[in-house]
Computed example of a mutant assay.
Amino acid sequence: MEELDLLKKDWQKNENKFPRVSEKEIYAMLHKNSTSVVKWIFLISILEFAFFLGLTLLLNDNTSTSSIEEYFNDYMVTGITVIDYGIMIYFFCLFYINYKKITTTDKVQNLMANILKTRKTVSNYIFVKITFIVILLVAIFILYFNNEPEMINTLQLAEAKGRFFIVCIVYFAAVAVSIAVFAGLLWLFYRLLYGLLLKRLKKNYNELKKIDF
């Protein structure tokens, strides 16, 4: 987009010295830039998948990871893993499809539609990924509350002293705050990761709206 901005400045400064770039040339530039952006979105999704796969393998023998997995039976662990990787594979397949569509499109209207679709796909991915993680964390904290020996002992002592409900309220309030903060940080991470690319696509879309042919 820097190239297009520079061209616009040249037009303003030297309108009588240089021929104006045609709309088709502007379209070609926007098309090339959009293709590059969507390609990067696709590559980042693959790198993210590889990173989390490597992290999972690395943490397989970790003590804290093993203790968390004790709360789930084998079927639940398998189901969670399948859903998690299924979400990632599904979306980076969509990113690839969007990339191919933008690469092969030859009309302004089609390019604009594909840009909007790509932006929506990325937004949906961020929403689904964060929602899945939040649901998983809620399940882990509930299972911890009901099964962890230390937690059960704490609840029994609290019940004996007539403070059972207070302990429950404090625990779930702390869980809610922790999950909210974590989800917020995760959302910020994804917005930073994909945000710049989405801004470039939005700018391309706005420029394409000015083209009339």
Rank of each mutant, 00 (worst) to 15 (best):
V21W: 04
I166T: 11
I140T: 06
F182T: 11
Y144K: 03
T118A: 15
I142G: 08
I89A: 15
N62M: 00
L201H: 04
I46M: 14
T154Q: 03
L192F: 10
W11V: 04
D74Q: 14
T131P: 06
Y27G: 15
I115Q: 03
I89C: 08
F72T: 06
E207S: 05
F92I: 15
V38I: 13
T154V: 04
K24C: 09
P19Y: 09
V134D: 04
G162I: 11
V108L: 10
T121D: 07
F18V: 01
A173G: 03
L58A: 07
I89M: 15
V170Y: 02
M29I: 04
A183E: 00
N146A: 07
N98C: 13
I44E: 11
L137F: 05
I102T: 13
T35M: 09
L157E: 14
L59N: 00
L59V: 00
M1I: 06
M1F: 12
F127C: 07
I80F: 15
K203F: 08
I130H: 00
D84A: 05
A173M: 02
L6N: 11
N204L: 03
A174P: 01
Q109K: 11
K39F: 05
M151T: 02
V21T: 04
F164G: 03
K9W: 01
I152G: 06
R119A: 10
L4M: 12
I115W: 05
S67I: 06
V77A: 10
V38W: 14
I130S: 07
L116Y: 10
H31G: 12
L30T: 09
V181Y: 09
F51K: 13
F189H: 11
S22C: 07
F49A: 07
A176R: 03
K8W: 05
G79L: 08
N73F: 09
V167S: 01
F165R: 05
K209N: 07
L186M: 12
I130N: 09
F141K: 08
S36T: 04
N204I: 02
R163P: 04
Y27T: 10
I68L: 02
I126T: 00
A176V: 10
S36D: 10
R191W: 06
E70T: 00
K210R: 05
L55K: 06
T81E: 09
N16M: 01
A180H: 05
E70F: 00
L94D: 04
Y96S: 08
S66T: 05
Q12L: 12
G162F: 14
G162P: 04
Y75E: 15
L196C: 03
K161T: 09
K203D: 14
D5E: 15
L59T: 01
F132Y: 14
Y190G: 06
R163T: 10
I102R: 09
T104W: 07
A50C: 13
L197S: 10
A158K: 02
I126Q: 00
V128K: 01
N204T: 05
V122H: 00
Y96I: 10
L186F: 08
I97N: 07
T121M: 05
T65K: 03
